[in-house]
Design a protein around this nucleic acid. Sequence first.
DNA 1: CCGACCATCCTTGTATTGCAAGGCTCCTTG
DNA 2: CAAGGAGCCTTGCAATACAAGGATGGTCGG
Lengths: 115, 115
Amino acid sequence: MPIEGLATQLRKGVIEYCVLAMLRNTPRYGGELIQLMRSQDGLLTSEGTIYPLLSRMRADGLVDTEWRETPRGSPRRYYRLTKAGQQAVSDFQREWVRFRATVDHVFVHEGGPQG
Amino acid sequence: MPIEGLATQLRKGVIEYCVLAMLRNTPRYGGELIQLMRSQDGLLTSEGTIYPLLSRMRADGLVDTEWRETPRGSPRRYYRLTKAGQQAVSDFQREWVRFRATVDHVFVHEGGPQG
DNA sequence: CCGACCATCCTTGTATTGCAAGGCTCCTTG
DNA sequence: CAAGGAGCCTTGCAATACAAGGATGGTCGG
């Protein structure tokens, strides 16, 4: 079990909200998001992760989409946060802080009062 | 999608190592681990999570087991960390610190330099 | 025009994991 | 014997990340 596989499980349930966070201030398209995620240590992803994810978020109403022409090449589908998406990011952020504190606590105390 | 469901995905890949961490200083049995996990905010679990997990860890050589008699009632299977288990906890801890930093970074910067 | 190439988007199938629901065994209590 | 509880485990399901493969449409060299 490589060290990569360890992080793969950590990513579950987090990647979605990282993508949403990256859309907070500006719309972006698929390839751009993949590049951005890859530039973050520990969030390595592939197309097979991002595109189904974006479809899901669109179906859930967390993002809006809009096609934009490009100077050269195919048009790109840009994703933008909806109100619900912004709310989801906020909710996650709260939950993340709480979860992070819990895990830190477990690893500091190493298993309880007797430890 | 309740707020509980949000944390359910966060737990993936973390519960296993939290259980291992709880075995660092003393062997414990199933019911004890369930109670301990439940006492940690954000790590709510059930038997259906813990027992398959413990079986997996035993198969992977991360824990040893030993039956112990009790004054009353059924004997209990106690779990204890192996060398490999201790190593796994250390590896995870390193990975967790790194992962945590990455997620924090994404949420602080909110998606990039243009933001 | 024609073929090679590339960026963009998406789909399908697999592995891992957390969890609810249910079952088994043994002991105690009446 | 019957009822109940503590401990252990199995089965089936849902959500997610990811590899692999494919469809489309534009550019570029000949």
